[in-house]
Design a protein around this nucleic acid. Structure first.
Lengths: 140, 140
DNA sequence: ATCCTTATTGCAAAAACTTGCAATAAGGAT
DNA sequence: ATCCTTATTGCAAGTTTTTGCAATAAGGAT
């Protein structure tokens, strides 16, 4: 477990503490090839840190999201899940089969800038989920 | 209670049944000036229909969303809430003070069309929530 | 190495949400 | 008006998520 060094360093620099719980959860998110629900993270994390509680998982996922290391995504059922926030992207999800396609942030940029100038808001890099029907499911 | 006639008629035409529960919930959503959480809908609906249960509220809100009469929105804390789906719009929410600004769907249209042609997906009119900091909160 | 401050975790209980199954009641047919 | 079918609701139990408070342990200071 050393791949999450960069991440923990960032935390440390910003005055947050590094705990075994945060290490494990970061590690799991970094090695997941999909987004995980809090429960999935919990089950996985317990294997190496049995004393970990759900409460902490929920709070840690939220914390990591706040500081920008993780981001909330959504699954087919639009229940929430989390993933490492390594680069800005968004999801397009098929409501029927669950298929996911990634939408790069660059596509969204003009819209975001438009919104920012018009409203004066400063947007957070939030992860958006579009829902629809994939080409295959449209035929049925 | 008659303002929800049009809505119930739509249901009826599509083969769904009209029940007192659905009537009450539709009525509440139509007279709310903001989006409501399931619990808020429940509390309000109970006043005129004490036998109503939470379970039914959750299921009805989901049902109304499926058939397009309601839509899921998000509050400051990104917990889910619902509102009547009378016209397509999206929300921009301040993470700090909770202030909300509406984003008309027309702003999003070019992006949506771009996504549709590029991915072959057929998008659902989903309600998106952008998060950020409002002008006032940026100063603090 | 030890102490101190306080951020972070765990605990316990509550609140929010989901699920399967049996009972009820819409709404069409007789 | 009554009956029938089955969509919809309620019930009960389970799962997920949140919250306040006390205990713990990071990490800086001595």
């Amino acid at each position: 477990m050393s791949c999450e060094e960069k991440a923990t360093q960032k935390l440390s620099e910003r005055g947050f503490r590094i705990t075994p719980q945060r290490r494990v959860i970061l590690h799991i998110l970094m090695h997941a090839n999909a987004h995980l629900t809090p429960t999935e993270v919990y089950e996985e994390a317990r294997k190496s840190l049995p004393s970990l509680r759900e409460t902490t998982v929920y709070r840690t996922l939220e914390f990591l999201t706040q500081v920008g290391l993780a981001q909330e995504a959504f699954s087919k059922t639009s229940k929430s899940a989390y993933e490492i926030s390594d680069y800005a992207h968004h999801h397009l999800i098929c409501r029927k089969c669950g298929k996911e396609v990634e939408i790069p942030h660059v596509k969204m940029k003009p819209l975001c800038e438009d919104i920012e100038t018009e409203t004066g808001f400063q947007l957070m890099q939030n992860h958006l989920s579009f829902f629809g029907l994939c080409p295959a499911c449209q035929k049925n």
